[in-house]
Design a protein around this nucleic acid. Structure first.
Lengths: 250, 250
DNA sequence: CCATTGACTTCCACTCAATGGAAGGAATTC
DNA sequence: GAATTCCTTCCATTGAGTGGAAGTCAATGG
């Protein structure tokens, strides 16, 4: 009866990965039907793939029947260089920054034309923030993003300048102005934003260099303070950035 | 010619997962040949699977040709409950503990008969520690492990008591003594170890409760101090534990 | 300079593992 | 108790996956 009406051109692996892709920040937990919908796969196929992922430990079935990402996949993700090399080294310095400044501290790397947030440490003044580990935000509207863009390849810069999406009324969407800002960031060594991503919050950020002198990440502080107040934190950020560089790749 | 000599009884998915399983803490980066060896798959099959994983973003190829876990897999792992619910909530409390006590703070959950370390915060006195996020250590030889075991199901306790492996000369390997220690831990609300996992380091730990009153994790401090000194930190640990419970599941 | 080695990539005819519609359960709602 | 929702199992069909072999490329060394 069945069997014939396959979905040609799609590998088993791609289907298994589609199942995993069904999970994201807004859908960290999903029922079989939801997974099947989101992955665009027949229910029976999804059922089989999910079962295999559960046996392996990549997914876990909760009491209510919904599936979640399992510890095995979590532990595997920790092996990624962003976690194992960057986060591991940067965390103590970020803690010190958060403790002494009282503000939220971020570290991010560039992923295409987005800033990928690796870690966030909440300061004591704890502003509510949009970013979380794993979040991607546009390069042009965030402090860390501007730093990463200022040190990116020309191809990336051109790509990013072509997508200056307006997020708030203060987002810089004029190419010429952004180009001038990027030059300024390279010159003075730090970037700033004022309500360009979220209304009511400002940020400053500096580059984190690898042992070879290339920019591997950006370290930033986000707060509700005025720009003036945040600018004072630049020396502390630069100190932490140097510490991270010195500590990495022992 | 070929084609016939398959490896029957093994699904494509299981092979793809075997490729991922080739990566671990000791092998966070591997060449195609190494992956093929570790996964027990023919080179050409490995090649195809790896290529698909790279396209998806689960693996990344470095300049030297070796593969590493990619950002996509890392971000996916962050969706696991241990990270999204527990770590996210516990981190600020752990930071405070590390800042005020100056010692290394750990949080771990039980995974079978092992303590799975979720996060470690280095104190200012920074002892070198064995644990890292994602590490699994025996329940009976660690402070957090003993807490988790003391509140575990009888089936688990029996299983764990059957595997009291000696790690150091001070590891508790006598069943009767361990049973008495577990009862004591339940009674007074905290566990301690003295050089039972690593020579020269001691630890104390307390349970972290979920909203329903069940033990979901264990919070501990590891240091080179004497047991006497560490015991003083129990109230601080208990305070942090309560804070974590209160903050979770808003 | 060419032989050798090792690591990776591509090729292709064969075949069995994957397929997915349908039917059967189980639990919940109306 | 009928309808609905969600999950699980079944099975004949077939094309996606297979892996040995041959080809490519770079590095080593005689």
């Amino acid at each position: 009866m069945a069997g014939g009406a396959r979905d040609p051109g799609r590998s088993v692996t791609s289907k298994a990965l589609a199942v995993l892709s069904a999970f994201d920040l807004r859908t960290p937990s999903a029922s079989l039907t939801v997974i099947s919908d989101r992955a665009g796969l027949p229910l029976s196929t999804t059922h089989r793939l999910v079962a295999e992922l559960v046996v392996w430990g990549g997914l876990v079935r909760k009491a209510d029947g919904c599936y979640e990402i399992g510890p095995r996949l979590w532990a595997l993700g920790l092996l990624a260089p962003v976690s194992r090399e960057l986060r591991e080294v940067a965390l103590p310095f970020m803690q010190d920054l958060a403790a002494t400044t009282g503000e939220n501290v971020h570290i991010a790397v560039r992923q295409g034309i987005h800033a990928l947030y690796i870690e966030r440490i909440a300061g004591t003044r704890s502003v509510t923030v949009v970013s979380r580990s794993g979040t991607e935000l546009p390069l042009h509207a965030t402090g860390v993003g501007k730093v990463l863009l200022a040190h990116a390849d020309q191809v990336i810069v051109r790509e990013a300048l072509a997508h200056l999406v307006r997020v708030t009324p203060f987002t810089v969407v004029e190419r010429g102005r952004m180009v001038r800002q990027l030059a300024e960031i390279r010159r003075r060594g730090w970037a700033e934003t004022a309500q360009e991503m979220t209304m009511g919050t400002c940020s400053v950020a500096v580059a984190v260099f690898g042992q070879t002198g290339d920019v591997v990440a950006a370290l930033g502080v986000v707060a509700t303070s005025s720009r003036r107040g945040l600018t004072k934190l630049v020396p502390a950020l630069q100190l932490a950035s140097r510490g991270i560089t010195r500590t990495s790749r022992r």
